[in-house]
Each structure stands twice: as structure tokens, then as C-alpha cells.
């Protein structure tokens, strides 16, 4: 079985007025299909940067990242986008729904970008599974935070992704909503069998993953 995601001695530095600052330093990891990996660490340890590098949203300063067997460093932006379409799902802390589209259209657009036709039934089905049957035509501004995150979950899972990148999926929600979303999130992951890379501060969420990677100050992997 081939790994879904690998990082090989990946580092990331940024320039600051005081010189170069190391965000990540020599990260090496492997994620196999179906694995659930939590990335934790204190604020500023570079965990979200690591997630962005692994998903091909950012480029490392050095080191190699492979996603679905492809080396990201040699792909241009369009090739990375094509690789993500239909294979990768995202769940963001601040939802990032498209304000001009209704709930179902937000889900459909992921299917369309993945090359599917007749997107409506699948999108409606996913919204039904996240409990938003009555809210399909609502716009993001007409939905609560928890409901918006459910739409985001439907959008992420509707393409049956091989890997899911989640960045603090419950970070913007109250405690009650947070628990419900977390349950829904892990249930769906189990149903779809996607690999998961989850950035979180929440120990209870991290505990629900197969492995926990902890980043320390300076972006070094501690465990």
C-alpha cells in the first residue's frame, strides 16, 4: 500500500526584519490510507503551516512533500489544484463558504470542480447526512456557525476524498456545537474511509485520531 502523504525533511523559513525565522524544521512523516493523524502543539509552533505544506497550499523552503504519490515541488499551481480536485477535502476553522452561493450550491461546486455532472442529488444527500435537509437553499449569512461548519463538512466529504485536511474544525464553535460537529466529522470520516490530517488544540479531538504528532517551538517534531 502506498502512502497518501509523505514529508521528507521539510523545512520552512520566512524573512523578518530581524533575519530569517524558522517556522518548521526538518519534518519527516508518512500518512497511510485511512490513517487519522492529529497535529498539535502550542500557538506559533507551525502546525497549520505544516498542514498547508502537506496539502500543497504552500511550498516548503526545503525538503520534499508527496501527496497521493506525486511530488508537489515539481507541480505548478494548476497541477496541484487538479490533484486536489476530487481527492482532497478541506475543513477550515472559519468555514470559508462562498457567500454568494446557497448551502447546496457550496457543496455542488466541489463536485463540479472534481469533474462530476448532475451534482445536485449527491450534494443533497450529503446535506441530508449532516442534518441540513431543511437548509439547502439558505445562504451562509442565514446559517449559524455550527450549520455553516456542517455545510463545510458536506462540501469536504461529497467528493469521497482520499485525504481530508482539517484545520481546527471546532475552533470557532461553542462547546455544544463543537461536540456535535466533532461526532459528525469522525462519523463521516469513518463512513468514507478517508485519511485525516487534523490540526487541533483540543486534546479530546486529538485523542480520537490514530496518531498524535506534537510540534514544539521552532517547528521541530517532538513526537
Amino acid at each position: 500500500m502506498k502512502p497518501i502523504v509523505t514529508a521528507d525533511d521539510v523545512s520552512r523559513q520566512v524573512k523578518t526584519p530581524d533575519g530569517e525565522l524558522s517556522i518548521l524544521d526538518g519534518i519527516t512523516l508518512t500518512v497511510m490510507p485511512g490513517d487519522a493523524v492529529a497535529i498539535t502543539g502550542p500557538s506559533g509552533s507551525g502546525k497549520s503551516t505544516l498542514l498547508a505544506l502537506l496539502a500543497g497550499l504552500e511550498d516548503p523552503t526545503s525538503g520534499l512533500v508527496h501527496l497521493l504519490g506525486k511530488e508537489l515541488g515539481i507541480l505548478n499551481q494548476d497541477e496541484k489544484a487538479a490533484l486536489r480536485a476530487g481527492n482532497v477535502g478541506f475543513v477550515f476553522q472559519t468555514f470559508h463558504l462562498l457567500a454568494g452561493l446557497s448551502a447546496i450550491e457550496n457543496v455542488e461546486i466541489a463536485l463540479e470542480l472534481a469533474g462530476y455532472d448532475n451534482t445536485r442529488p449527491a450534494a443533497a444527500d450529503l446535506l441530508d447526512r449532516v442534518g441540513l435537509t431543511d437548509r439547502v437553499n439558505h445562504y451562509p449569512s442565514q446559517l449559524s456557525g455550527g450549520e455553516q461548519q456542517r455545510v463545510a463538512l458536506a462540501r469536504a466529504f461529497v467528493v469521497n476524498p482520499k485525504v481530508l485536511f482539517a484545520d481546527e474544525p471546532t475552533g470557532n464553535l461553542d462547546a455544544a456545537s463543537s461536540g456535535l460537529i466533532a461526532d459528525l466529522f469522525f462519523d463521516l470520516r469513518q463512513q468514507f474511509g478517508s485519511a485525516l490530517l487534523l490540526v487541533t488544540h483540543d486534546a479530546s479531538l486529538a485523542d480520537r485520531c490514530d496518531r498524535i504528532l506534537t510540534l514544539g517551538v521552532g517547528g521541530r517534531l517532538q513526537s
Partner: peptide, 17 residues
């Protein structure tokens, strides 16, 4: 707003074109 939307679409796999 456009920049954020473009980023979301890009993350979901939209091409430059």
C-alpha cells in the same frame, strides 16, 4: 472577499483558467 473566494476555489481544485 474575491481573494478569499479565489483561495477557496483554488483549494477545492479550480484551475487558473
Amino acid at each position: 472577499e474575491r481573494s478569499r473566494d479565489a483561495a477557496v476555489l483554488r483549494a477545492l481544485g479550480a484551475s487558473t483558467q
